[in-house]
């Protein structure tokens, strides 16, 4: 494997966003890119990252390899990069280590680190292709604020999507609260758009603790996409350049 990423910062932000959910994971490398799929310990949330080969320049992966990496270790090394550094990831066949090289674009500084790899026996889950009943795009900072605000009142949030808009509501010991968003187009600042694409009304309840955790990815993308259908996990997607993505799935709270 040899993969050069123009922005070391991108990988650093991804790792910062997921490392409180998942600790040890395999980075699966093949000629389409670098993928990661991992569940949190309680099996309530699933992280799925895809960094497509087009996100790298150049990208070369001659044989499929799984790099088992402890994310705390990776975070330590990525913190050694300067914010504008270029990152090259390298690994041999059947590797013991992954090699990270940070290059400064405007100086001759070159730093190099090896991280020891781990043998991680991780099961892969098949995520079915789903036509979601509601697809909502909104500013990622807005979603983060809603989740944090409602978490002050309750541990769970009901998300209801109708023709009227999307309503986030909660009920707790001190009282209740809700935030409703309607479709909204801002020509000057499309990052502030709220788009709601609905085929049928949806109402689901989720744990706010996980949603707040997902929102650590807000720095990766100005917009976040929420995809919901009744009785299936919520998809929270942060789109990255070149069709790469960081996705989180969250199992709903069900029953009475």
């Amino acid at each position: 494997l040899e993969a050069r990423l123009e922005q070391a910062n991108l990988l650093k932000k991804v790792v910062d966003a997921i490392k409180d959910l998942v600790q040890d994971c395999n980075f699966d490398c093949n000629d389409s890119g670098i993928a990661l799929q991992a569940m949190d310990n309680s099996h309530v949330a699933l992280v799925s990252m895809m960094l497509k080969s087009e996100s790298f320049s150049p990208f070369r992966c001659d044989r499929n390899i799984a790099l088992g990496i402890n994310l705390t270790s990776l975070q330590k090394v990525l913190r050694c990069a300067n914010s504008e550094d270029i990152l090259t990831l390298k690994a041999e066949d059947a590797p013991d280590v992954v090699n990270l090289v940070f290059e400064s674009a405007d100086s001759d500084r070159l730093s190099e680190y090896d991280i020891k790899l781990m043998d991680i026996d991780q099961e892969h889950l098949g995520i079915p292709e789903t036509e979601y009943a509601a697809n909502i795009s909104m500013p990622s900072a807005e979603f983060q604020k809603i989740c944090r605000d409602l978490m002050a009142l309750s541990e769970s949030v009901a998300i209801e999507c109708t023709k009227e808009g999307v309503k986030f509501s909660c009920n707790g010991d001190i009282g209740s609260g809700s935030v409703t968003l309607r479709s909204h187009t801002n020509v000057d600042k499309p990052e502030n758009n709220v788009e709601i694409d609905l085929t049928e009304p949806v109402a689901l309840t989720f744990s706010l603790k996980y949603l707040v955790n997902f929102c650590k990815a807000s720095g990766l993308s100005g917009q976040v996409k929420l995809c919901l259908s009744n009785e299936v996990p919520l998809l929270v997607e942060y789109g990255l350049a070149s069709n790469s993505y960081l996705r989180f799935y969250l199992a709903p709270k069900i029953g009475d």
């Binding site: 309530v44 699933l46 892969h124 889950l125 995520i127 799935y249 199992a251 069900i254």
Partner: peptide
Amino acid sequence: GKGQSSIFSFFGKK
């Protein structure tokens, strides 16, 4: 109240 479901209830092992 509602109970927390698991990812395994929805996504099968490959």
